[in-house]
Design a protein around this nucleic acid. Structure first.
Length: 897
DNA sequence: CAAGAGACTTGACAATAAATAC
DNA sequence: GTATTTATTGTCAAGTCTCTTG
C-alpha cells in the first residue's frame, strides 16, 4: 500500500530531517484533498470575511468540545430521519450579507468566559484582582472594555469573578470569590446590537431556529452584554498588537515563509486524490458562511428589525432546505466515515480496520533500581532497608519539597503501601517518626552533579540513551515508518493524582513484561522481550485498534495504559482531521440545534428540558460533558454532573458557576443566560441539597444519544472543538489588519488566548512571576530616568550648553540635539515595548495557550491564515505541531472553518 | 438499561533544551 | 561564559465516548 509518497513525509523532512521516516507513506492523503476541495468551494470565503468583519460584534462564543473522530459509526445513524438536522439558514441566504440579521437565533449568549481560576502554584497565591504592584499589571485592563487584557478571572463576563483561586483543588474554593457579583456590565452590551434583535428567535418548531419565545427582551440584553464583553475584549486586543512577541530573528521569517511555500507545494503535489476527498468535498455545502458563527455572535449582529423579518424568511427557507440538506448531509457523513475508514485502512480492509500491517519492537523498560544505601532516620536513628524498601522510601523522599507533603491522604496512602513492603513487624511503624532528609539531600546532590556535568558528558549520555531507545521509537504501519508515542514503560513511583484524589501517594508498582500485552501484525516478528528470562503477557494481532501495547494501570487495575503511535503519525492525523471535519459539520446544524433546544426549554418533559438546558450550557460555555465518576477518583464535575452548589442563580438571569472541572481546575464564571434557562435551572435546583445533581434525569449517554439524533456523530465534545475553532477563525478574520508579521502574530496570540479562556485552559503562575514583573518594572523605571536625563540634555544642547554630568559624576559626551532626539525616541520605543511585554506577561500568567492549539484549533484555519497574510507558519507552530499537522499544510489559503 | 470494559483524546505540569540576560 | 527565562518536549493523569454484558 503504501508506497505512495506523500506529502507528509516531505513535510517531515523539512522539519526534522532525521527523524523522518523513511518509508514513504502512502497517500493517506485522502484527507488533504478534501480540504482543498472544500476550500475551493469556499471561495466565498472572502465574502465571509467581509461579513464577519462587518458583523457587529462578535461575541465571544464558546462552545464545543473536542471532537473526536468517531465519525465513522455515526454515519450509521441516519440521523436524518430522526431529527432532522437543520441547517442553518444562514448560509443559504447568504445573500444577505448582513449576515447578521439572519440569525435570530439564539439566545444571547453571552460571554462566556470562564473566569479563570488562578492557581497559584501550590500555594495559593491569590492573585489579586487588582493587579499587584506592578503598575503595569494593573493596566491591563484598560478600561473596562477591554477586558482582554484582564486576567481571566477578571474577564469573566462580569468581571465578577475574578477571584481566583488557586486551584481549587485545594479545597478552598468557592467561597473566596464571591466578591463581585457584579452583574454584567452593561457597558458592553450596548455596543452591539440591540439585544433584542439578537434574541429574538422565532420559534420554529422544527428545525427552524429557535426563537425564543421568551424572547423577552431580557435575553437580548444579556446577549448584548455578553457580546459586548466579548467585543470589548477583542477590541482591546486589537489595540495592543503592538507588543511584539517575536523573539526570533527576522531572518527566520524568511525562511519560514519559504518553507511554507515549499511545503505547500509539496503537499499539493503529493496529495493524492482520494475518494474520500471527493466525497467530502462533494458537499459543497459547508462552507457557507455564516452559520458557523457562534451563537453569541450572531445574536449580536442582527439588527432587530431585520432580523425578525429576515429571520423568518430565512427560516422557512432554511427549514426546507435544511431538511434536504440534512439528508444529504447525513449521507455524506456516512460516506465520509466510510471513506475515512477506508482511507485509514488500506482498501479492502473491513470495518473498523485501522491497519493492515504493523511492525514494531515493543516497549522499553526503565532500568532496575540501583540502591544508594543512604539511610533514613527513624526516631533519630539510621535504619537499614532492603533495596525494595529503600526504593519506595526514596520515592517519598524525593517528593519532600512538593505540595503532596501537606496532604494527609498522600502520606496515609504512601505509608499504607510502604508498610506492606516493610513487613508487619518492621521497626518503622509511624511515618511521623521517619526522617527522609538524608535521602532527600542525597537526591539533591545527585541532581546537582548531573547539572554540573560538562556538555560533553551530557552529550555522550544522551547519545547512549538514544542508541538504546532508537529501535523502540519507530513502527512500520502499512509499510510506512511512523513514530511511536510513548514507547517507555512508566517507571514505578508514587501516584500523583490531581486535586483531592483519594489514591494519591499509593505505590505505582513496577511494570514487568508479564504485565504487557503486545499488539502486532500477524506475521510480523514478535518483539524480543528486553528483560532476559521474562516474557510478554500476551501477543495479539488486532487490527481494529491502534495501540501497540498496553498494561493494566497498577493504581486502578480496571484501567489500561496504552502505547500508541505519536501525534505525527498518519493514523493520528487522520483521526484528528476527522475530528475537525465533524465539528465543521456542526456548523451546518448548529442553528437547528439551537432552535430545537431553545424550544425545549419549555418542555413539560423534564428529561427533555434538562437535555435542552444542558446542551445550551455546553454550546454556550463550552463545558465538558461530565461523565459520572467513581468514589475513588477526585470529585470533579462537568455539565451533566453539575451539583446544586455549583450553579447559583442570580436574578434576574445570571448564573454563577463555580466548580472543579477536569484536573481539578476551577471554573468560575458568571454568565447571563436566557430567562428560560435561568428559570429552568432554578426549577432543577429546587428541593435539592447542595450536593445533588442539577440534571438528575440526565447523564452523558442520554445527552449524546440525543445529540446524535440531531447530527450524525454529534457528541458533547464536538461543541468544544467547534466553538474553539470558529472563534479563532472569526477573530483572525476580524482582527487581522494587514500589519507586519510581528503584528499578525500578536493578533493570532490574542485569538488563541480568547479560545483558551473560553475553554478554561489554565496554568499555574510561575514561582518567579512576581519577581520577573518586579524586574521589568525596575527596568522601565530606569529607562524613564534615562529619558529624563536625555530630555534635560536636549534642552541644554539646544541652548548650546553642555550636558550635565551623569549620576556617577563622569562627564558625558556632548551630543547635538538631533542625536539626542534620536536617542530619546529610541528610549521611548524601548519603554513602550517593555510596557507591552509586561502587560502581555501579566495577562497570560494564568492562561495556557498550548492546549487549545494542540487539541481544539483546526490547524487549517491557522495555515490558511498564514498563507493569506504571509506569516511564516513556523511563527505559529513549533516543530512538533508542524509534524502533527502535516495533514493540514496544503490547505487552500481561502479555507475558512 | 446500568455497569463495566475498552480505546482514544485532552490536560496540566515537569523535565529539557534553546534563547537571552547578565 | 554563566545565570535566567522562555519555549519545547515528555509524562502520565483524567476526561470522553463506544461497545459489550447481564
Amino acid at each position: 500500500m503504501a508506497v505512495e509518497a506523500c506529502s507528509k513525509p516531505k513535510l517531515m523532512d523539512d522539519m526534522d530531517e532525521e527523524d523522518e521516516p523513511l518509508v514513504f507513506k502512502r497517500s493517506t492523503s485522502s484527507s488533504k484533498q478534501n480540504q482543498s476541495n472544500s476550500q475551493a468551494q469556499k471561495s466565498s470565503s472572502s465574502q465571509k470575511h467581509d461579513r464577519q468583519l462587518g458583523r457587529p460584534m462578535p461575541d465571544v462564543h464558546v462552545r464545543s468540545q473536542n471532537g473526536k473522530s468517531s465519525v465513522v459509526q455515526k454515519g450509521k445513524m441516519a440521523l436524518s430521519s430522526k431529527s432532522p438536522p437543520v441547517k442553518s439558514p444562514l448560509r443559504s441566504p447568504e445573500a444577505s450579507n448582513s449576515s447578521a440579521k439572519a440569525y435570530p437565533l439564539m439566545p444571547p449568549e453571552a460571554n462566556l468566559r470562564p473566569s479563570a481560576t488562578y492557581r497559584s502554584d501550590n500555594v495559593n497565591r491569590p492573585m489579586k484582582v487588582g493587579k499587584p504592584s506592578i503598575g503595569s499589571a494593573a493596566e491591563p485592563n484598560d478600561s473596562d472594555d477591554s477586558e482582554d487584557d484582564k486576567p481571566l478571572s477578571a474577564r469573566l463576563s462580569t468581571g465578577l469573578s475574578k477571584i481566583n483561586s488557586n486551584n481549587a483543588s485545594k479545597g478552598s474554593n468557592a467561597s473566596r470569590l464571591g466578591q463581585k457579583p457584579s452583574i454584567p456590565k452593561q457597558e458592553d452590551s450596548d455596543d452591539e446590537k440591540p439585544l433584542s434583535s439578537k434574541v429574538q428567535l422565532k420559534s420554529n418548531v422544527g428545525t427552524s431556529y429557535a426563537s425564543k419565545s421568551y424572547d423577552s427582551d431580557e435575553d437580548k440584553p444579556l446577549v448584548a452584554k455578553n457580546n459586548q464583553n466579548g467585543s470589548a475584549l477583542r477590541d482591546s486586543s486589537s489595540k495592543k498588537p503592538s507588543t511584539m512577541l517575536s523573539k526570533r530573528p527576522a531572518s527566520e521569517i524568511k525562511s519560514a515563509g519559504q518553507s511554507l511555500v515549499k511545503k505547500h507545494k509539496l503537499s499539493n503535489a503529493s496529495v493524492p486524490i482520494n475518494n474520500k476527498q471527493a466525497s467530502v468535498k462533494a458537499e459543497p455545502k459547508v462552507e457557507d458562511d455564516d452559520d458557523h458563527v457562534p451563537i453569541s455572535q450572531r445574536m449580536k449582529k442582527p439588527a432587530t428589525a431585520d432580523k425578525k423579518s429576515s429571520a423568518v424568511k430565512n427560516v422557512t427557507k432554511v427549514v426546507s432546505s435544511s431538511l434536504n440538506k440534512t439528508n444529504k448531509k447525513s449521507k455524506k457523513v456516512i460516506k465520509k466515515s466510510q471513506y475515512s475508514k477506508s482511507s485509514k485502512v488500506p482498501p479492502g480492509s473491513g470495518e473498523g480496520q485501522k491497519w493492515t500491517t504493523l511492525i514494531h519492537n515493543g516497549v522499553i523498560f526503565p532500568p532496575p533500581y540501583q540502591p544508594h544505601g543512604v539511610k533514613i532516620l527513624y526516631k533519630g536513628k539510621p535504619v537499614n532497608l532492603t533495596p525494595e524498601q529503600e526504593e519506595v522510601a526514596t520515592m517519598f523522599a524525593v517528593m519532600l519539597d512538593t505540595e503532596y507533603m501537606s496532604k494527609p491522604k498522600f502520606k496515609e496512602n504512601f505509608m499504607s503501601d510502604w508498610r506492606k513492603i516493610l513487613g508487619k513487624n518492621h521497626i518503622i511503624q509511624n511515618l511521623e517518626d521517619c526522617d527522609f532528609s538524608p535521602i532527600y539531600e542525597w537526591h539533591q546532590k545527585e541532581k546537582e552533579k548531573k547539572k554540573q556535568m560538562s556538555t560533553e558528558e551530557k552529550k555522550t549520555l544522551k547519545e547512549e540513551k538514544l542508541k538504546q531507545e532508537e529501535k523502540y521509537m519507530w513502527a512500520i504501519v502499512n509499510g510506512v515508518k511512523e513514530k511511536v508515542g510513548n514507547f517507555r514503560v512508566e517507571p514505578p513511583g508514587l501516584f500523583r493524582g490531581r486535586g483531592e484524589h483519594p489514591k494519591m501517594g499509593k505505590l505505582k508498582r513496577r511494570i514487568r513484561p508479564s504485565d504487557i500485552t503486545i499488539n502486532i501484525g500477524k506475521g510480523a516478528p514478535i518483539p524480543e522481550c528486553p528483560i532476559p528470562g521474562e516474557r510478554w503477557k500476551e501477543i495479539r494481532h488486532d487490527n481494529t485498534v491502534t495501540w501497540l501495547a498496553f498494561w493494566n494501570d497498577p493504581i486502578n487495575p480496571k484501567e489500561f495504559k496504552y502505547v500508541f503511535l505519536a501525534a505525527s503519525s498518519t493514523l493520528k492525523g487522520q483521526s484528528d482531521k476527522e475530528k475537525y471535519e465533524k465539528s465543521r459539520l456542526l456548523k451546518d446544524y448548529i442553528q437547528g440545534i439551537r432552535a430545537a433546544y431553545t424550544k425545549d426549554f419549555a418542555s413539560k418533559d423534564l428529561t427533555k428540558k434538562q437535555i435542552a438546558v444542558a446542551t445550551y450550557l455546553i454550546d454556550k460555555l463550552a463545558l465538558r460533558a461530565g461523565n459520572e465518576k467513581d468514589d475513588d477518583e477526585a470529585d470533579t464535575v462537568g455539565c451533566c454532573t453539575l451539583k446544586v452548589e455549583n450553579v447559583e442563580p442570580i436574578p434576574p438571569n445570571i448564573l454563577k458557576f463555580d466548580f472543579l472541572g477536569k484536573d481539578s481546575i476551577r471554573y468560575q464564571n458568571e454568565v447571563e443566560v436566557e430567562p428560560a434557562v435561568f428559570k429552568a435551572i432554578q426549577q432543577f435546583r429546587s428541593g435539592k441539597k447542595a450536593g445533588d445533581d442539577i440534571f438528575d434525569k440526565l447523564d452523558t449517554s442520554k445527552l449524546n444519544a440525543h445529540l446524535k439524533e440531531l447530527m450524525p456523530g454529534l457528541t458533547a465534545k464536538v461543541f468544544r472543538t467547534y466553538n474553539a475553532s470558529i472563534t479563532l477563525d472569526e477573530m483572525l478574520s476580524r482582527e487581522t489588519k494587514g500589519g507586519d508579521v510581528a503584528e499578525n502574530v500578536v493578533v493570532y496570540q490574542h485569538a488563541n488566548k480568547e479560545v483558551a479562556i473560553i475553554c478554561n485552559h489554565q496554568r499555574t503562575v510561575s514561582k518567579s512571576h512576581s519577581a520577573q514583573m518586579l524586574r521589568l518594572n525596575e527596568k522601565i523605571e530606569e529607562l524613564k530616568g534615562v529619558l529624563e536625563e536625555l530630555t534635560t540634555d536636549l534642552s541644554r544642547a539646544k541652548k548650546g550648553k553642555p550636558p550635565l554630568k551623569s549620576a556617577d559624576g563622569k562627564p558625558k559626551r556632548n551630543l547635538n540635539p538631533e542625536a539626542l532626539e534620536k536617542k530619546i525616541a529610541q528610549t521611548n520605543a524601548k519603554i513602550e515595548k517593555m510596557e507591552r511585554d509586561k502587560e502581555t506577561k501579566e495577562d497570560l500568567k494564568t492562561v495556557a495557550l498550548g492546549t487549545s492549539k494542540i487539541n481544539y484549533l483546526d490547524p487549517r484555519i491557522t495555515v490558511a491564515w498564514c498563507k493569506r497574510h504571509e506569516v511564516p507558519i513556523e511563527k505559529i507552530f513549533n516543530k512538533s505541531l508542524l509534524a502533527k499537522f502535516t495533514w493540514a499544510m496544503d490547505v487552500d489559503p481561502s479555507f475558512r472553518f
